[in-house]
Design a protein around this nucleic acid. Structure first.
Lengths: 210, 210
DNA sequence: CTAGCTATGTGACAATTGTCACTGACCGGT
DNA sequence: ACCGGTCAGTGACAATTGTCACATAGCTAG
């Protein structure tokens, strides 16, 4: 069975059975909002295929990309929020068409006790997400926008597994909490340096970029 | 007994007995480095009195204050690092003379299983620290330096419980990953707005500041 | 009291980023 | 092929932040 195939290297069979019994399988289209900022966390997602995007909003509507949740991964902040019934501090969006298991929050605690693999999965998730937030902080505090942009493009390329990035300059500027014109300028600079090619709604990273 | 007094509202007696048996009581002077960036985490601190400062460094030696650990609190990142034996991503310094318990990392896991109050303490710590990192990100991404500075001063004042802040402009600029002259300028502006008074190595926040 | 260190104040200027205004390019639907 | 919308390019300028140079003030050890 599909779920089994995906997780049998990570979790014990018994836990996978629990997934099959208690989790809901959900399919969302690219762009769908799975959990909005401030909403109550009602489940913990664990991705089967596709990618979820975790981002932070401020009052004025600006956005900032924090990290991606890929296949076999989950989001640390839903763990900690849900275990104590707090509203979400982040927004979760489908970066592409995505299939995930919605784990019931009521089971989280029980599974932590019962399944060592689940506990270590939770701990590992928390640790890696902490590090991703620290990395976001590093970039904001210590790097200039051009370095951040290069990094952003590398991340996108890694997530999609392609050197082609299908985004408008405006979308990029939103995810980086900057402005469209600035991003256009910096991209143009990178194009002049022969590191990438610009098209409408698309950027092609050249070998030189890496 | 002292430890009991501090923690008997939070933890079960049996766990406090474990503290007394297995934890080491450590006293450090202001400015002491408890754990340096990249070093192996050898214990989890839990503060009895005073304050620890958690900060992030980059390669070039710049620093950025992340958050404080006050009385009865601990640092989430040492939990997750130590449970899986990873090097520290942050630097821990004594913000003032501080007394803390050094909990043995070997006991963390066992206590999580055995003491519900410990488990919920860990979860609560992780959640609040996540939120503090998110708040740091918010400030870096969405706020200007003058707002960040005002916020920084408020935090300092809250931690020390005083409207007098004993820091040079240079120290502030380091913790905020900015430069001395810029901080001087912004402080001067705040002084002109009658929000604070500037002295050598000291800043006095006025009622108007809040 | 004074020499010397450290802290602060400040003007001038540079670099980075953001904003505004406008142009033309591209693209899908008719 | 044309229309209307979205997207990208660009110059001019503003705002923010960083850097440099130097002056001055305050503190402390001797």
């Amino acid at each position: 069975m599909q779920i089994n195939e995906i997780f049998n290297q990570i979790f014990e069979l018994e836990l996978i059975r629990e997934f099959e019994k208690k989790a809901k399988l959900i399919f969302v289209k690219e762009g769908a909002v799975i959990l909005d900022f401030g909403k109550t966390v009602s489940m913990v997602p664990i991705v089967l295929s596709g990618t979820l995007k975790i981002s932070r909003l401020d009052e004025s509507g600006s956005e900032l990309l924090l990290y991606y949740v890929n296949k076999k991964e989950s989001c640390a902040m839903t763990f900690t929020c849900c275990m104590q019934q707090f509203p979400s501090e982040v927004k979760i969006t489908a970066e592409e068409d995505t299939e995930f298991l919605a784990l019931p929050i009521t089971a989280m605690d029980e599974w932590m006790m019962k399944y060592p693999t689940w506990k270590s999965f939770v701990m590992k998730t928390i640790r890696t997400r902490f590090n991703e937030l620290l990395s976001a902080i590093d970039q904001l505090a210590f790097q200039k926008l051009d370095e951040r942009l290069a990094n952003y493009l590398k991340e996108k390329s890694k997530v999609t597994g392609s050197a082609l990035i299908n985004l408008s300059h405006e979308q990029i500027s939103i995810e980086m909490a900057s402005s469209r014109e600035v991003i256009s300028r910096l991209l143009k600079k990178l194009e002049n340096e022969k590191k990438l090619l610009l098209y409408r709604n698309q950027i092609k990273l050249l070998p030189n970029f890496w």
